[in-house]
Design a protein around this nucleic acid. Structure first.
Lengths: 197, 197
DNA sequence: TAGTGAATAGACAGACCTGTCTCACTGCTT
DNA sequence: AAGCAGTGAGACAGGTCTGTCTATTCACTA
């Protein structure tokens, strides 16, 4: 067998991609090991050789997904010129995702729902992904506003995106992404530092 | 036994409240019937007499929670005068919730994560609750802006709230509610109809 | 006092869960 | 040719899951 690399054999990749599809569609607790290995056409011991436990597999799946997400956003950001355009490409990515055939909501949000213990590795993987996106937007925004306002705005944009993903999951993808985009640029273009009454 | 009402005996209430606490803390699939009846100190047949299945119990728990949420928001809205104040009381409610000792995120969002099939009764219960909150904010906003902009703004506020709940779940409750509030009033006070570049 | 309806504890069925283990096979490398 | 790492198929253990059923007890009512 021609193994592509010691850390990433073909079988391992099959398992991760199959588990990703099943976790996404049916959830983590509801997806059994037996179904994963059956659909991946892999022996049980092969899976357990690569992943010590189901929890470990879940973390690896989340990491796989997070890395792909980051790569795609990196590539989109290269095409954009202004900071506003860079933010817009992020919303573009979400719009395409919402419209994709097998959209089932955010795997990380789902993982958080099923693994709410902050000490659990899955929880930490989720927090890492969400904070990564927030930092990405924050560093973009720091080119057009002071750092403290960039931090607040990035947090607000992340909340809008997460909420839009939830609404898209409930079948309101079109209005969700449209209203989120409008709200985002309303926040960014706010005349002064935002203040609540 | 002095039953309070034909539709709501004490035992039934025990089961719903216990199941609510367990579902909130551990999730739906991860919480077994046996644990619910043990903590509620109720026989298994008693539970199955009131709820034909676990799925049915989950729906009843969600309804119970949604009704309590609506009652609390109704009472808060009575104390507010202006539409802006009414919106602010909703954010106040969320702020107190985020800071409460046993906050574990939104039970409805968690239910959506575990029951993603739009035909499932649990899915419909979640959609009902979220759309209810959106309509509540929309009708408040219609007093200070045209109907189409009220609809967009209500959707944006819902997304902010859902995103803030997610961030609070990840231990960032303070910045989440603060930034969400600022963003919300920035959107509401936007000088004109929002437009994206 | 007899009857009725609800609740109880717990056994039980049948399925599914994670994780371990054995044994046979395959294809590459030395 | 021999060895070896990786893999396949599946039995197996020990536990948990939902949902059903029985036999019994208790409180209240006619």
């Amino acid at each position: 067998m021609i193994s592509s690399s010691p850390l990433g054999s073909d079988k391992r990749r099959y398992v991760v991609e199959t588990a990703y599809a099943l976790f996404k569609r049916d959830g983590f607790h509801a997806t059994g090991i037996d179904r994963i290995i059956a659909e991946a056409e892999v022996a049980k011991m092969t899976m357990y050789r690569h992943f010590p436990s189901k929890d470990d597999l879940i973390v690896q799946v989340l990491d796989y997904r997070a890395r792909r997400f980051d790569r795609q956003l990196d590539r989109l950001a290269e095409e954009a010129v202004t900071p506003e355009q860079k933010i817009a490409t992020i919303f573009d990515w979400y719009e395409r995702w919402f419209r994709s055939a097998d959209f089932h909501g955010c795997l990380f949000a789902h993982a958080l729902a099923e693994f709410g213990n902050p000490e659990h590795p899955v929880f930490k993987a989720v927090a890492g992904q969400k904070n990564g996106l927030r930092r990405r937007m924050q560093s973009i925004l720091e080119d057009i506003m002071p750092p403290d306002r960039a931090a607040s705005t990035a947090a607000a944009l992340l909340m809008l995106i997460e909420g839009a993903t939830l609404m898209a999951e409930m079948g309101q993808a079109d209005t969700a992404i449209c209203d989120a985009r409008k709200a985002a640029f309303s926040i960014i273009a706010a005349p002064s530092a935002m203040t609540a009454p």
